[in-house]
Amino acid sequence: MRTAYEIVKAHYDANARRDMDGMLADIAADCRWTEMDGFPCAGTYVGPQEVLKNVFFALGEAFDGYTFALERLLDAGSDVIGIGDYAGTYRQTGKSFKARVVHVWSVADDKIRRFEQFTDTLRVADAMR
């Protein structure tokens, strides 16, 4: 059985490869995925298909070169903390942004059960104006 740290690291490794199937592989059917209020795809989505549609596809459609770069991954047992940076260029304005971000993950029974994002939404909003 993999640790929570290994499961979340596998998600980030898949993100770095641009492997969508790998990114979704360990997200539980009942996972509650929360994007911060004020972020372009703010809300809580349940399950991998909702995350795919309302987060990954939505950001890919709105931004050119949208990326997350992981700086540190912290092991807190069944919880894992990812710290890094978002970057991208908003298609409608042509403006770029870079924003610090923290992801808080909860893992149980070999699946991602909860995700919550904390980021500087003002930097993203400025690029969208």
Rank of each mutant, 00 (worst) to 15 (best):
79 D>S: 13
107 V>T: 10
24 L>A: 06
69 A>S: 14
122 L>H: 11
123 R>K: 14
36 M>D: 03
104 V>L: 15
81 I>L: 09
13 D>R: 10
77 G>W: 11
122 L>M: 05
100 R>L: 07
57 F>I: 10
60 G>C: 06
93 T>L: 03
40 P>H: 08
107 V>E: 11
59 L>V: 10
15 N>H: 15
113 R>G: 05
85 D>S: 14
20 M>N: 02
127 A>C: 10
52 L>R: 15
68 F>L: 14
101 V>R: 00
52 L>M: 09
51 V>R: 03
98 K>W: 03
90 Y>W: 10
24 L>R: 14
6 E>N: 11
29 A>I: 09
128 M>N: 01
127 A>E: 05
118 F>T: 13
6 E>W: 03
97 F>E: 01
19 D>F: 07
100 R>A: 14
120 D>E: 05
91 R>H: 05
126 D>C: 11
78 S>D: 15
19 D>H: 09
89 T>M: 06
48 P>M: 00
32 R>P: 04
5 Y>K: 15
50 E>I: 03
29 A>W: 09
36 M>Q: 10
78 S>E: 12
6 E>F: 00
128 M>H: 04
118 F>W: 12
46 V>G: 01
100 R>E: 13
28 A>H: 11
30 D>S: 13
70 L>W: 10
58 A>T: 02
111 K>I: 03
73 L>Y: 00
9 K>L: 15
77 G>S: 11
71 E>H: 06
123 R>M: 11
70 L>M: 11
92 Q>K: 15
79 D>Q: 15
1 M>K: 14
74 L>Y: 11
32 R>S: 00
67 T>N: 13
73 L>R: 00
38 G>C: 08
31 C>G: 07
42 A>Q: 10
18 R>T: 12
66 Y>R: 12
43 G>S: 02
